[in-house]
Simulated scan of single mutants.
Amino acid sequence: MSRQEAERGGRRAEALAAWWLRLKLWTILARRVRTPRGEIDLIARRGNVLAFVEVKARASAADADLALDEYRLRRVAAAAEALAPLHARAGDILRIDAIFIVPGRLPRHLENIWRG
């Protein structure tokens, strides 16, 4: 798969994940936010929960389970830390979530995956 194909697939997965969250009554605050410390695919809010969401698209559920490792999660956490002051309100619960996109399945949303 070429870099351009991977980029297009990633954008499609992020759009699907954003729609999935909207169906669950989340508001999407930002998409594809880059910082010097890392990138956040989606920033979403529902009530007083502010979620920094990593989206992973894989060909199978088994591949999806292996898509997030400690290194990637640390980068997401560092980016979330840099972005939190721009989006968080007093009393918010901040967390890092992941959404896995696998063909033929509904998106799988894992909440609060980082305990760093």
Rank of each mutant, 00 (worst) to 15 (best):
A82Q: 08
S2H: 13
E14G: 05
E54D: 11
R12K: 15
A77E: 14
L21T: 06
I101V: 15
L23E: 14
E70Q: 12
P103D: 06
A57C: 07
D63S: 15
Y71I: 10
W26P: 03
A6V: 13
L21N: 02
E7P: 00
R75W: 01
L106F: 11
W19V: 10
R58E: 13
E39T: 01
L25C: 03
V49S: 09
V76M: 02
A59H: 10
R11F: 09
A51L: 06
G10H: 06
T27D: 05
R74E: 12
L94G: 06
A30I: 00
I28Q: 09
A51V: 03
R95C: 10
D63Q: 15
F100T: 09
L106N: 10
A79R: 02
I43P: 00
R95Q: 15
H87D: 03
S2Y: 11
G47H: 03
G47F: 06
E54T: 03
V33E: 11
L94W: 04
L86Y: 09
N112R: 10
R8E: 12
G38M: 08
A30H: 04
I99S: 00
N48K: 14
A80C: 03
A18V: 08
K56L: 09
R58Y: 07
T27L: 09
A67T: 12
A57S: 14
R75I: 05
R3S: 15
R3Y: 15
Y71N: 08
I40V: 10
R115N: 09
Q4C: 06
R22W: 08
